[in-house]
Amino acid sequence: MIVGTLAIAATFSILVTTTIVIVLARETWGFFHFPDVSVGEFFGGLEWNPLLGSEKHFGIWPLVSGTLLVTVIAASFALPIGLVTSVYLSEYASPRVRATLKPTLEILAGIPTVVYGFFALTLITPLLQKISPAFGSYNAMSAGLATGIMILPIVCSLSEDALRAVPRSLRDGALALGGTKFDVSVKVVVPAALSGIVAAFLLAISRAIGETMIVALAAGGIAQITANPTAEVQTMTAYMVQIFLGDAPATGVEYKSSYAVAAMLFAMTFVLTMVGQYILRRFREEYE
């Protein structure tokens, strides 16, 4: 009886996924039936202009490009720094240093994203504007850096787990062959833990793609295709915030468009997670 109840609890998670897929599919299907919308324009169009002007355009690429720009900035900040930090934590740090560093990272990991958004808006952006006047009061760089800070602890702790799972004997072997600590860490331990590190990177990237409050506060609201970090961009998540905060009628095409955007977002993070899982399964180096 108890086991039966527990089994039902376990099926609940399947129900959640199924419902997400059904809800997103049904509403997206409805969205594609509006006269202003076509599937071809949604996936091929280079203009996203659902609210203003007489002619509405629903091409997803400006939103995807905004999301990718912020994600690339976040990843180029967090992935290298996070990886090096995790190597230091797992290979070099004394127990005392670890005892202070780990809680620091845990606090960073627990800080609500809206706080990072506030930080981007009130500190990072003004600093960037001091460096170059090209930065507007909303820009991709500031949101990207704040998102990078947000994913940094994820990269650190997951990569560190992977590094620490590498058995002692590999390190001892490399040291016995005359390797320096650098040789051991970078040429032996990191390659041995590569699958775990890549999976950590993918998870962090998918977090950055789905991040909402930072970009809603700091990245701005202009959907445009650009690689310029000083420019204002709108991400997929920021567009959804704009719609759900605004007074768009629940039956209107603008409102429904947010479901199509959500479906795209879900698909992107789903693929990243699946690839990460596959890499972990397929390329895991089993020792012992």
Partner: peptide, 29 residues
């Protein structure tokens, strides 16, 4: 309790996936 088989593998993969779904999508659900 669960026997390690196809069902548990699917549930497990599914949970990993759910952990990666952006929170705003849960909002829509």
């Amino acid at each position: 309790f669960a026997r390690k088989g196809r069902f548990t593998r699917i549930v497990q993969t599914n949970i990993m996936n759910l952990a990666g779904v952006p929170s705003i999508v849960y909002g829509i659900l």
